[in-house]
Amino acid sequence: MRNNGAVHGAFRSAAMRFFSPRALAAPYVVWMAAFVVAPIVFVVIYAFTAGDGAFTVGNFAEMGRFVGVFARSFWLALISTAVCLALGYPAAYILARESGRVQRAAVVLIMLPMWMNFLLRTYAWMSILERNGLLNRLLGALGIAPLDIIYTPAAVVIGMVYNFLPFMVLPIYSVIAKIDRSLIEAAADLGAAPRAVFTRVIAPLSLPGVLSGVTMVFVPAVSTFVISKLLGGGKEILLGDLIEMQFRGAAYNPRLGSAISLVMMVIVIVFMYFMNRFGEGEEGVAIL
């Protein structure tokens, strides 16, 4: 009886160990290891090895001819991020002051396009921007000369802004909505005109949201490839396209592709590091 109890106890504690909260994280840890950590390790290995498996930095040396692609990608990502910020901040600001019902409805509307496939949304923009597309027919009806937007960098920027704008609006909105109304009243009470209330209180307090929005738009914008292919016409390739080309297609060279990916990742990490340094002291930098 005693013995039986001890065995039972041991079994129970083993079971509890198995089902401990830490153990419950196991499926996710395995998933992350297999599909996030391992690929990064492979990218690093590939980037530093030649075809015969020997260590080399040759892959990086080869990247010299793609400086233009790097520059273009970062430039377009920067423009897209700036446009998203310029459009998204006022939208988030206005939204945050609306009534609860309006806010909830608007958040759903902002998220709605994201429930649709990314490719479909981009195709939709093709039919809007193309030569005989919706936009030009509309302009024609108004007697305005058609615009040549499709297959230009402008089209790529439009596509990126459309796709990534929610990632700018939502974090800024959630930070502004949480600003205590009494802080705004306190600023006005202390003599700050509406403009000063914004620059001295609301803007600094919403900075964490801006940082997280900028990160969430800039990072995918730098590495995008479908948008540039479909809307940019593949004339001026971006980093994403360049990497894709190294893995599938005629220019097959996964080692070069890995090297480019690695450099891009390092640049993005450095970028994020400085962003977060910039926002230090602003507790709760919420990366959604």
Partner: peptide, 20 residues
């Protein structure tokens, strides 16, 4: 007359200090 033009200041219930 808006608050910023009044010669009146307030100590708020939960202080409303600027955390930044």
């Amino acid at each position: 007359l808006p608050p910023h033009k009044r010669n009146v200041n307030t100590v708020f219930q939960k202080y409303a200090l600027f955390t930044h």
